[in-house]
Amino acid sequence: MSLSGELIAFLGLALVAILGGVLLITLTKVVHMVIALVFTFLSIAGIYMLLSAEFVAVVQILIYSGAITIVMLFGIMLTKHQEREEPSKGRWGKFSLLLAVAGFAVAVYLGIYNLHIPVQPTTLHEENTKQIGIELFSKYVIPFEVMSVLLLVALVGAIVLAKKDDKDEEGDQL
C-alpha cells in the first residue's frame, strides 16, 4: 500500500484526534482538557472531509468546536471547580475499567477485522449539501420537524432548569 495523499491526511488527522483524546484523559487542568478535545473535534471534521461529507464536516466544526466547546467552557467558568482534577477511583477500579475497555475494544476490533465490504463508487462528493438538503426535505421531513421540536423543548428545559428560582429560595427561608 503506497502512501497516497489521502492516507497521509487520514493518518495525520487520526493521530491528532487520538492525541486529543489521550490528552483529555491525562491532563490535570479542566480547561486544558476541553481545549485538547477541540483538536479532536477539528480533526474529526477533517475525517468527514475525507469521507466526502463536506456539509457534516462544517456542521461538526460549527457545533462541536464552536458551540459545545464554548458552552462547556461557560459551564466550567460558572461553577466553582477544583482547578486540578483529582483522580477519583482507586487503582483497582481504574485498572479493572481499563481491562474492561481493552476487552471491549478487542472484541469489537475482531468484528471490524472480519468485516469485508467491497468498495463501490459513490457520488456523495458531488453537490453534497444539495443532496443532503433534498433528502432532508423530502424523505426525512418529519424527523426534521420533530428534531426542531426537540431543540425547542431542550431550549425551554435548559432555561427552566438553569433559571435561579427566586420563589423557592424565599420559600426555603420561610
Binding site: S96, L97, A100, V101, G103, F104, V106, A107, V108, L110, G111
Partner: peptide, 12 residues
C-alpha cells in the same frame, strides 16, 4: 459496562 465487556469478550 464491565458486564457488557465480559459478555462481549465471551461472545468474541
Amino acid at each position: 459496562f464491565l458486564g457488557l465487556a465480559v459478555l462481549l469478550v465471551i461472545f468474541a
